[in-house]
């Protein structure tokens, strides 16, 4: 069953016009992209910075209008719906934004942020409160934080709050736009594990966007590679990782692989007051 299908989506930004208003310079942010996301088959979208990933995600969310193309959500063509007609369908598809410092209104408490996401639900106040707690626990936060403000949290915690908010509406599909890219590797790992866990519990499908293949391959059984506004390769994870076909994918894979080091680290370890040892040549560790 297809949750979301994008057909021939195109979005060009005109960044400069001449004196008659004719386009002088056009950025082809998304150039004829088609994608399908099946239920419980999360799709990862990988691509370098500026290749149009965020633009594509926003088009899928109907936050910006594509120049051409169709968006099919749960079998229904939503590309021509107005914002008002779109409102009841919104809860099916949610998004976690790229910048955790920008995606939560600094003037809202966590309770208000979550409450806003459940505005269209018919739950009573007490039921909502119960749901807030459940959500916060699910994303690994304490339910006591409901009265606090976003600035009191670290980036990783904010991203968890944003994930809780996206899940609050009980969506079928969650678009995660670089959801872990701004986090350090260990926190990234935690959040990814949490996302896998949430996928089981809430039965959601992810459309996971990242420039980091290592992150994507952990979460998504299907991977699409985007390059300069186009999808250049898509396949199941194993196939893509083992037999990359497109030169850009090969490039990406080799860049994501191990680093080669041909120099030794120089460190005057004998004179340090700490107890350093040299495990192999040019490799130091504190005991």
């Amino acid at each position: 069953m297809t949750v979301l299908a994008l057909k021939n989506i195109k979005k060009h930004f005109v960044t400069a016009t001449d004196w008659r208003g004719r386009p002088q310079h056009v950025v082809r942010a998304v150039d004829d992209v088609s994608l399908q996301i099946a239920h419980k088959e999360s799709l990862g979208l990988v691509g370098e910075s500026g290749c149009g990933k965020t633009t594509l995600a926003r088009i899928a969310m109907k936050l910006i209008a594509p120049d051409t193309g169709e968006i099919i959500l749960g079998g229904k063509n939503i590309s021509l719906l107005s914002q008002t007609q779109m409102r009841p369908l919104r809860r099916k598809i949610q998004m976690v934004f790229q910048d955790p410092f920008n995606s939560l209104d600094p003037r809202f408490t966590i309770r208000r942020i979550l409450n806003e996401a459940m505005l269209l639900s018919s739950l009573s106040t007490a039921e909502k409160e119960g749901r807030f707690r459940e959500l916060l626990l699910a994303v690994g936060l304490s339910p006591d934080i409901l009265h606090r403000f976003p600035y009191e949290f670290s980036g990783g915690e904010r991203q968890r709050i944003a994930i809780a908010r996206a899940l609050a509406a009980d969506p079928q599909l969650v678009i995660l736009d670089e959801a872990v890219s701004s986090l350090d590797v260990l926190v990234q790992e935690q959040v990814l594990n949490m996302l896998l866990d949430l996928q089981q519990r809430f039965g959601v499908t992810y459309f996971f966007i990242s420039h980091n293949l290592n992150v994507i391959k952990k979460l998504c059984p299907q991977i699409a590679v985007m390059y300069q506004g186009r999808i250049v390769e898509q396949a199941y994870r194993e196939s893509l990782l083992n037999q990359p076909q497109h030169p850009y994918t090969k490039n990406l894979l080799s860049a994501a692989m191990s680093y080669r080091c041909d120099r030794d680290f120089v460190f005057d370890w004998a004179s340090s007051k700490m107890r350093w040892t040299q495990k192999t040549k040019g490799h130091f560790v504190l005991e």
Binding site: R58, M86, R90, F97
Partner: peptide, 25 residues
């Protein structure tokens, strides 16, 4: 700002977004 987009994605009406996410700032 992304929180405005988020509010839009949650299906809030424009008036509500202006009143709660734009004007207070």
């Amino acid at each position: 700002r992304e929180y405005v987009l988020a509010a839009k994605a949650m299906g809030l009406s424009d008036i509500r977004i202006i009143a709660t996410h734009i004007l207070p700032h």
